[in-house]
Simulated scan of single mutants.
Amino acid sequence: MSFTLATWNINSVRLREGLVARFLQEEAPDVLCLQECKSPVDKMPLEAFRSLGYAHVVARGQKGYNGVAILSRLPIEDAGDRDFAGLNHARHVAARLENGVVIHNFYVPAGGDVPDRTVNVKFGQKLDYLTGMRDWFRAARPHKSILVGDLNIAPREDDVWNHKQLLRIVSHTPIEVDHLAQVQEAGGWVDVTRQNIPKGQLYSWWSYRSPDWSAADKGRRLDHVWATSDIAAAGHDSRILRDARGWDQPSDHAPVLARFDL
Rank of each mutant, 00 (worst) to 15 (best):
G246T: 15
V57W: 10
F84K: 00
M44F: 13
V148S: 05
H104R: 00
L166S: 11
E185K: 12
P109F: 01
N105T: 11
A139G: 12
H92G: 10
Q184I: 12
G112Y: 03
I231Q: 07
A227H: 05
Q35M: 04
V192P: 01
P40K: 09
D150L: 01
A95N: 06
D150V: 08
I197Q: 10
E185I: 12
W226C: 05
L202S: 15
L97I: 06
T193E: 07
L74Q: 02
R134L: 11
H172Q: 07
G67T: 10
D135N: 12
E98P: 09
W206Q: 00
H104G: 09
T228L: 04
W213A: 14
I76D: 00
A48V: 14
I146G: 04
D159R: 00
P115Y: 00
I197S: 10
V108M: 03
D191R: 03
A90T: 07
D243G: 13
N105G: 07
R134K: 12
T118Y: 11
F3A: 07
R259G: 15
W136K: 00
D243R: 12
A258W: 02
D159V: 06
I153S: 05
L87E: 06
V160R: 00
F84G: 04
D42N: 13
N66W: 02
S229P: 09
R220E: 13
V183G: 08
V256L: 02
T193G: 13
L130F: 08
Y107E: 03
V160S: 06
D30P: 04
E77A: 05
R50T: 13
W136T: 13
A48Q: 14
I146P: 00
A232S: 10
G219Q: 01
H163T: 12
E176Y: 03
N120Y: 03
H163L: 07
Q62P: 10
G188K: 05
L130P: 07
R117P: 09
R22T: 15
A110K: 03
E26H: 11
Y54C: 09
L97Y: 00
A233R: 14
D243A: 11
S171H: 09
P29R: 01
F84N: 04
T173I: 13
R134F: 09
R156Q: 15
L262D: 07
V108H: 00
A186Q: 11
V101T: 11
T4A: 12
V170C: 04
H163C: 10
A110Y: 06
D30E: 10
S210G: 13
Y54D: 12
A28Q: 14
P142F: 04
N162L: 04
V170I: 10
A233Q: 15
V102C: 07
P109S: 14
D150G: 11
N152S: 12
D261H: 05
V160T: 15
G64F: 08
D128G: 14
L71H: 03
R73N: 06
V177L: 05
A110V: 10
H172R: 05
G86V: 07
L97T: 06
G53I: 09
T173C: 07
P142I: 03
S39A: 14
V58R: 06
T7I: 14
R14Q: 13
